[in-house]
Design a binder for these strands. Sequence first.
DNA 1: CCACCTTACTTGACCGTTCAATATCATAAC
DNA 2: GTTATGATATTGAACGGTCAAGTAAGGTGG
Lengths: 342, 342
Amino acid sequence: MTLHKKQPTIRDIAKLAGVSYQTVSLVINNKPGVSEKTRRQILRLMEEMDYRPNRAAQTLTTSRSKTLELIIVDVRYGGYLAHSTKNMAHAATEAGYSLLVSETDAEGLEAALESALSRMVDGIVLSGPRLRIEDEALKAMSRGIPLVRRDYVPSSSLAWVGFDQVHATRLAVEHLLSLGHRQIAAIPPTSELHNGYWRYSAMRSVLGEHGLSLGPVAEGDYSIGSGYAAAKQILATGQPFTALIVGTDGMALGAMRALREAGLRIPDDVSVVSYDNAELAQYTEPPLTTVEFKFSKQDELCIQYLVELIANPALELHQRVLTPNLIVRESTRALSSVAGGS
Amino acid sequence: MTLHKKQPTIRDIAKLAGVSYQTVSLVINNKPGVSEKTRRQILRLMEEMDYRPNRAAQTLTTSRSKTLELIIVDVRYGGYLAHSTKNMAHAATEAGYSLLVSETDAEGLEAALESALSRMVDGIVLSGPRLRIEDEALKAMSRGIPLVRRDYVPSSSLAWVGFDQVHATRLAVEHLLSLGHRQIAAIPPTSELHNGYWRYSAMRSVLGEHGLSLGPVAEGDYSIGSGYAAAKQILATGQPFTALIVGTDGMALGAMRALREAGLRIPDDVSVVSYDNAELAQYTEPPLTTVEFKFSKQDELCIQYLVELIANPALELHQRVLTPNLIVRESTRALSSVAGGS
DNA sequence: CCACCTTACTTGACCGTTCAATATCATAAC
DNA sequence: GTTATGATATTGAACGGTCAAGTAAGGTGG
């Protein structure tokens, strides 16, 4: 009935090998000071005895747990987090770490960080697309644990890795302008989200540069349904538009259905641009012109940066901005009745 | 420059409170034997000193880490895992555990389990939809750590939580039969996947019960693109079919595009049924009739079952089969030229 | 007033590692 | 034949908790 037949310890191995426990420790940590012969013997014994070091004990003495933690704050529609944890877990393993994942809301963040501290986590990736917090507050809460935000937060001068939302928006807007569109409607992610906020303001400023202003707008929340609802709302205003910028491919799917239900053809009557370049984007009807975000790159980079930061905590914090690019498909076309773009 | 200003320990608190360290330990663990007055004082001091117990030390003495681990094996298209880790992380936190996530392939499984052992993980959720392993081998590898598989694996008598793939298939097939369809094609997930295998065999047996046999078949791999390719392949056979069963909503999206490209209308020429009931399914053109899997329920149940198993390791292992149900939308319709179903 | 029980608290050992300091020994240098 | 040297191995303390057994003080019953 005894399931756990007590793991052998470093001392058991030492006894069998006829050496002291410290020698075994040296072998475990690949440190010099052990003859090749004993090293080999000890390794063989470890194998035989099915020994494996106790991480808790190691953590206790070294104060490093070889663990990273991904804290997800207030993510409602986690579609874009789809492969994220998988990617990060993989990257973490490659780097010799394990990945802890926790999910919480803004209020719970402090508790999550406390728990991380309690577990002596070596570093934290924070994904909080709608989290507003002062750098100082966050720094205080994380109490010196290296932390990288997986978000585009220009307001922060702490470490973060995000996609350039302003450039992304410029790509979308200028693409439409070059096709001759002048009346542009939009379904940005809710402005509670950092990217929603930045995209919205970037849309206005880029259009402003061209002496234009933004047409009807309704926010979405990342769900397909919200894209549908937002498009309905925009249509209800009765304001004219020849192009629509939608926050995600998923929302674009919803929006296009609403447009179609209103008798509008895409791209003949309305051009649609979205963001993400999910696999979905190739298979909508018509395939979507979209601004590509390479999320897997972002995930990898977060871990990579975090690992650097752990190795060298004195490193000056900086921000890594990933540049998206536009993928043109069939949901956009030049406005026919107007002189084409430059 | 010293970032970590050394955490206070149980003994620091004890000294300040003028009691022994053991008394503080009792307070931490909510155990009796401490007067209300001292308890309060100690709690106040802990708060003030910003003390929090060191998990590594606790783990070392108690041999329980209050950690669960999700091991993802050989998941290529993790779309359906999208919210899984988030859900599980949440459920784990509720139950007082942290969640570790690791990603590997079949060869790496042993190493992943070793690492879990090393970390004294209290329980494991294994998601390996294409993992074929003998119960005995798995039991040996997990060395007594409670383990629950998050897959439909009828071949295993260990603990697992999965959706009844046979029933799911019966729902899809009988729905089509009742609509008068007799020539049914299919794009099941690759038979390397457990659910692919079971769905395929269930389709054949259910049809067999009705004296029918399965039409053209091509496997998909969960990606939208594979649905597209598979449909093309089926069309290329030239074999007639009036209905198509597709493994996931995503693949159905791809498949429907291929059908449309071939000039076929849905559901007028071909009825389509898929599985999952992702949000996507409501927004395809036309909306999909689909077999609903409540993944979040599965995730929760895995954690819940695991926690039970940890509390009572002697518990007899069993399997929890979730029953899916059919959601009828507009991608299926009765075959017009044939006498309707019973 | 003594035995006995409770309640509140203390003590020492231990969990399985790492770290710093120290010992041993063969070999080379002088 | 000392002595320095480097490689190899050992020892004791520490990390921050928990656990089991023990003690001291106060109350109760006979």
